[in-house]
Nucleic acid binder design. Structure first.
Lengths: 220, 220, 220, 220
DNA sequence: CATGAATGAGTTTTCATTCAT
DNA sequence: AATGAATGAAAACTCATTCAT
């Protein structure tokens, strides 16, 4: 009845799928990410996921307990992935202005390249973060992202390149909002305003705009 | 039952917007907006909508053809409403800086006060604007919003209070992104960062931030 | 989601199924009684019930909400039926000894002729009366059966044909136990002791035995 | 894992009832008795049994062939146990009236103390003794129970303390019915009549009643 | 226009059993 | 002898839609 997740994961997240069971699990997760991201929780079909999987439908219930269990696992993995990638950028050792600029660009590029993550987060918001709330592991991961930004701001203020009077979390919101919205809402935006967000020129222009706007906002 | 029919017929077809038929339609639309906004297209239940309606389920099919027809109508109405409200603000006769500041605040307040609209747009993006694309009426309405902004920018540049080098549509994106995201993604954001977007203080701080950031970005 | 039972039943139990809807409901109930009585709650198959019904499987959910809702309705009906039949015997106007003898015979005959009722009660006991407990209507009906017996005993004691020193409910238990067990446990009893409870001779002997045993027990 | 195997082999196959294999079998049987008695044959879950077992699910198939094989084994064991206990009472050497009284009390107490046995028999009757019929070993065991009663009756008749005109098997039915029903049907009875069969006072009263009723029935 | 009843096709979930190791 | 992984068949349940009146 219960999913085997806890047990399976006991050897740590770093160890890549090595046993067959872990490969099965990972394969289901990958297929499910695609289905949930494009169809939503209620629109996704367990049958459709199973069909694209190397395993049988029954395995979804064996490993994840059910449709919502699978959805939660997909969500958890998606969030874990983004922070894992962010952690790779060594922003702590850059000069503060460079670090902030880089942070914005990294955020922009991540959302641009992980539209499935963006979709999943949109979907989860439709559900009022019902499933995310039950994944407390993610809280820590995300709050470390804020600490990175706080560190950059503190160093910048010490050097006098950033002004006072704004909050790290608010700035994170300003950056995230643009990068996320550009991906999450591109379909309605394109439909209404007849433009093409996939064009490299527009993409570059937007990337430049959010960077400049944020830097202008923080400068003394 | 018969009295209702007689009553309706007696006043003639000319009286617009007050027919019983139109009241039924409006009632269904209102209930459906709530259901679709909170559950999504696939998550919404025709039965649930019918149950909350004064009319019967059959009426949904009679007036809107089906579930997706109803969804399209809900979407169309939601977009029409926002532009109707925006049109009320006479930004064209304000000084450009004031007009831009006011435009940002109006956008911020609208999203804040119309969370159902925000949800519907998020949902429509999950569906890749499939239904919105088939509502060409909206294109014109929305593009007029851009023309309003273009007019403000043009006046501002003529007066020398705004710089050159950025696009009206891009600026619209910058403003919309923040105002929309703040509402659309508040559930995951709150869950991850333990904050409360409903608090008047945070709300005021965010409203100020996006205004300042945009004004800083456009100034020469 | 909710069953329509309450609504359907609103015109009182006395009115036989007259509308088509009531016929459908009654038909499902009849088929389901057979299936649940022979297979138990978990052994019964909704598909099997639907197949033997004039209606479709969907109607079971429409009228009864689900498998357990249907089971509860079957149980309720079965108990209501027995008390309806018992009420027809005018025991209150017989001499007490005759009335008691008749009560025993009526109980014996009812169980003998309603093996499905007996099975359903056995099944409900496996489930620890979980579903019966939620049907409070039955409590009143059954307690009136005890009052009938109490009345007979009181009259008998007044006439001096019954002794004191025993309880009406206990006597009801003594009578019920034998009549019920003889039907409920006949299969294992026959298998173990190689006898045939269906034989009219054995049946008559058992009927005579319980009558005599009870009368012997109550006489002064 | 390997140590278990080595250990088992080392003590040889001759030591009956203490092999690990037999302990595993007994453990499964015990767990399964509980599950079948509370859930029924179709309601019981092989997974649930396996989970509560010290062994794995595969062992159920290894030792018992499958779910119904396990059920049959549980049933067989339950019947064997009751007769084993009954055989301990040396009724043959008591005066007939005392022996009969004692037999009734023993039966009453056994059912009272072995509610799982009672449940299993009820369940088996739902299945029309399908599985019991295939366990011929039980027939002999049970018929010996009747011979015990026949012996008591014969001695009692010879002494003139019991009358003629009734059958040993019928008397067994009268006794069993009450003792069994009191346990098997206590849930519905309690729900309908608002009483508590677990109360020592009621228990004692019932025990006395069945004893007196039977003795009154058999006396000349 | 309006309604309650009805439905077929689909969707999630369950479960006894078997397989590879 | 033993285990975790896997499965196909079947089960319960759902839902948008339509029909008879």
């Amino acid at each position: 009845m219960q999913s085997r997740k806890a047990k399976k994961r006991s050897r740590g997240a770093a160890a890549a799928a090595t046993t067959e069971a872990e490969q099965t699990r990972a394969n289901i997760l990958k297929v499910a990410t695609e289905e949930f991201a494009t169809k939503g929780l209620s629109g996704a079909r367990v049958d459709a996921i199973a069909a694209k999987t190397l395993a049988s439908k029954r395995m979804i219930y064996y490993y994840f307990g059910g449709k919502t269990g699978l959805y939660s696992a997909v969500l958890e993995r998606a969030y874990a992935d983004i922070r894992a990638e962010e952690a790779q950028f060594d922003l702590a050792h850059m000069p503060p202005r460079e670090a902030l600029r880089r942070l914005i660009e990294v955020t922009f590029d991540y959302d641009e390249n992980h539209t499935k993550f963006v979709s999943l987060v949109s979907i989860e918001n439709i559900h009022r973060a019902k499933y995310l709330s039950k994944l407390p592991s993610l809280r820590d991961i995300n709050q470390s992202a804020i600490r990175t930004l706080e560190d950059i701001l503190q160093r910048g203020r010490a050097e006098g390149v950033f002004r006072d009077g704004f909050d790290a979390l608010d700035l994170h919101l300003l950056i995230s909002a643009f990068c996320f919205f550009r991906v999450s809402n591109r379909h309605t935006f394109e439909a209404l305003f007849d433009c093409d967000f996939a064009s490299p020129r527009l993409r570059a222009r937007h990337r430049k705009m959010i960077t400049e706007a944020v830097l202008a906002y923080v400068e003394p």
